[in-house]
Design a protein around this nucleic acid. Sequence first.
RNA 1: GGCGCGGUACCCAAGUGGUAAGGGAGAGGUCUGCAAAACCUUUAUGCGUCGGUUCGAUUCCGACCCGCGCCUCCA
Length: 494
Amino acid sequence: MALRLYNTLSGKIEEFQPLDDNRIRMYACGPTVYDYGHIGNFRTFIAVDLLRRFLRQSGYAVNYVMNITDVDDKIIRNSARDGVSVKQYTAKYEKAFLEDVEALNIEQPKLVRATDHIAEMAEFIAKLQKKGFAYRSEDGSYYFRIANFPAYGKLSKKDFAGMEDGARVDVDEYDKDNARDFALWKAPKPGEASWETSIGPGRPGWHIECSAMSMEELGESFDLHAGGEDLIFPHHENEIAQSEALTGKPFARFWMHARFLLVEGEKMSKSLGNFFTPRDLMLKGHKPSAIRFLLTSVPYRNQLNFTFDGLKQAASNVEKLRNFQSRLTQGQFPAGAPENMVALAVETTERMKAGMNDDLNTAQAQAAMFDMVRKANAAMDANQLKKDDVPLLLAVLGKFDEIFSVLKDDDAAKMKRIAEWAKAEGREKDISPELLDAVRAAQLSDQQVNQKLAEMEQARRTRNFKASDAIRAELAAAGIVVENTKDGARWKRK
RNA sequence: GGCGCGGUACCCAAGUGGUAAGGGAGAGGUCUGCAAAACCUUUAUGCGUCGGUUCGAUUCCGACCCGCGCCUCCA
């Protein structure tokens, strides 16, 4: 059973087989670092992260490259506004992006920066010009000649043949041969960042970086190219045009696009006041694990309604999984060979795999996991779960977490970093009481907590409940929740 | 206007031509020194509306209503 994935290019779900036997080469359009990334951006990045993780789990070696766009109109405009260099400006947001990636447990892809590949882009354009697919305008800009690339529109399913040229000509771009032709290279303007290259001075157009860098890193043809659904046109369409015009070979075989999300049932926009970055949410006291889990809970091609209620639900989900894990790892179980748990473990593994193989149906995979959790918990309650069942169930849970990555409880530490960042940015006022609670939970070390726990257990054994309750209260005040079970005490950070 | 996606319980949400996964929340219960956790029961004769095809439709077809995306560098 192999992965079946929706391919925007064909408009169908197809079996995903790599060009090489066992090696996957994939590319995703990363952030333009002109501002902090928002949850919509991260939905896409997490969806691709899930794909990458699942492919690896399925036995493939995955080479995953993502670009960072560190030069574009907004960056130039904003850096000028702030009176800093483009490099200084983008460095801040690139750093923030990497921090967010880490906070959300997105495994870092190989990152490539546009400004590190200007020369290659110039070369790319020069070759296109030689082949007749690019032309230079009077001011020194270069454009792609769509008329010479008949396949234009195959990704976005647009038929440009019947469209009237020049219907919507941008007055600033009067020197294009055809209104649909797009910029490969922009001639320098006074005060704007510019590079000296083999094709003259200027800066790259938006699309060329992805063509040049993906080709350099992954070859002329590779397996999969991903991004948000808005990128289908014009960005990815233009990438295909540039790349295939140059090489005459198919560019990416699979095109994966993540659907936009809604926030509280409405589209996310700054004007509606429902525009959120992961940082905003963490400042409000939401755990990064909950943010990640919510963003994975709806399959990537479905619209996801991101709500604060949903965020709470996701936090409960994560906690349920973590509780289950600690119950398994810390509980005492009767000796004995595994019996009914074997079938459950196998069935769950298969259901998860079948779900993910079905165009990354994360909801199905999660449902399978929660079924297992409920049944295994019931078995534990009935004292039917044997010692040898434990590694079996933990292995299934581990497989789940190789993809979803929410079990490790480092939320408090991550939120502490956000609080520090907010202070450094002069945004103390945005730090919520809930965030302070979470940060407090990071203050005691594991060792300190375990020390207190031992004292509490001692008090309980001697039925000195007054003392044990005092310790419980003390730990609770430090953001530590203690659960007493017949097999001993467990704790977790609030 | 062109192209495309979706509307499932209080909330999030999967799914199927044969009678509705999973989670959260609520209610009741079991367990329990306290506090949790966990488990059990319960909450859609119903899947936007109206027609049609069919032995049978939430699932296919049509119309309509509503939401969302792309068609100008927004993931």
